[in-house]
């Protein structure tokens, strides 16, 4: 399989057949009775400087994918290459040394900051752990970072709870930037924020990407926000990516029935068009990842499913326009 990205830049992150399974324990002696296949064979790559959007319903495994890519959860199988190093199998000390290059911005800006540490020490901690900066140099770097994310550097002595949600997310971004990472996983970074703040944070992320040459994996369930920020978009359903394409191609002409259904649910800010648009309503609930359907995982809710879909798992195919789809019927 080829994973050539449309941008000319080198591939920074390459994920191949990533699986994350969680055991289910039950009973008095907590015997393992099953497995939740949260991520079940995901492959993609991210080019340096690009933003890959990862979308899907809640529970589809996109956050787990994001965490697994950074080894914040251990992968059950598969490769995760970070600039050529497979971090999936890296020992903890070697992994720790890789940490500065890859960072994460979390969904909940409140919970992701240690409540007992001042903003300054939260931002400075990775510097003292990995960096060589000491004393006033470190102090200056902290102020610099706070300034870079649009916070008053004098806030360094305050505690996270003294800030608003948007400000806290800026602190989270400053913290992620502290060690000059190449790659940042943004795990729903705006989902917990007020709509008015969301744009500010997204703009900040874009601005920083431009200035610092960052590479993002942008995880979100907000399709319009992804359309705004991402270069390419991957759509996940029940632990698998069903379609991966350039932004324009995906939003213009979705090929996978699930992508089509998702996009049809996004309202278009034009009442006339909106009124005549066809909405695809999916039947039923998302099946349990502990017991996914045979064949194509989407078949139980797919409007065009046939007998073949239950028997045969659709291949991850590259279509003519360069996009990848996992559907028997996509052309």
């Amino acid at each position: 399989m080829a994973f050539d990205s449309p941008k000319a830049g080198e591939t920074l992150v390459r994920v191949a057949d990533l699986k994350v399974h969680f055991p289910i324990h039950a009973g008095l002696i907590r015997r393992q009775v099953g497995t939740v296949r949260a991520v079940d064979g995901v492959s993609f790559d991210v080019a340096r400087g690009e933003t890959l959007g990862l979308v899907g319903e809640s529970g589809c495994g996109k956050s787990t994918t994001g965490r697994a890519v950074l080894r914040l959860v251990d992968a059950t199988a598969g490769r995760i290459e970070m600039a050529g190093t497979d971090i999936a199998s890296l020992g903890s000390e070697a992994l720790r040394r890789m940490r500065p290059r890859m960072q994460m911005i979390f969904q909940d800006p409140h919970a992701s900051l240690n409540p007992r540490m001042t903003v300054g020490s939260i931002v400075a901690e990775p510097l003292s752990e990995h960096g060589t900066l000491r004393g006033s140099a470190r102090q200056r770097r902290v102020e610099e970072l706070l300034d870079a994310v649009g916070l008053n550097p004098s806030f360094a002595n305050r505690y996270p709870h003294e800030f608003s949600g948007g400000q806290r997310q800026r602190i989270g971004i400053a913290r992620a930037l502290a060690l000059d990472p190449d790659f940042i996983v943004c795990d729903e970074p705006i989902a917990a924020l007020d709509v008015s703040i969301q744009a500010q944070v997204v703009n900040l992320l874009e601005e920083l990407q431009e200035r610092l040459g960052l590479t993002y994996l942008f995880i979100s369930h907000d399709l319009s926000m992804v359309r705004h920020i991402a270069d390419r978009v991957a759509v996940m359903y029940l632990g698998k990516i069903v379609e991966l394409a350039d932004r324009e191609a995906l939003y213009g002409a979705p090929k996978h029935p699930y992508t089509q259904a998702l996009l049809s649910a996004v309202p278009i800010p034009n009442p006339k068009v909106e009124a005549t648009r066809r909405h695809i309503i999916l039947k039923g609930d998302v099946p349990s990842p502990a017991n996914p359907p045979s064949g194509c995982r989407f078949r139980t809710r797919c409007p065009i499913a046939e007998a073949r879909c239950a028997a045969e798992e659709p291949a991850w195919r590259k279509l003519d326009d360069g996009r990848h789809v996992a559907c028997h019927f996509a052309t």
Partner: peptide
């Protein structure tokens, strides 16, 4: 299970520091 623990790990802190300090 708090996110700030994940943050601490993402920072590349040693596990001992994550558990004992954070």
């Amino acid at each position: 299970n708090q996110d700030y623990v994940r943050t601490a790990r993402a920072k590349g802190l040693r596990e001992r520091v994550v558990v004992l300090v954070h």
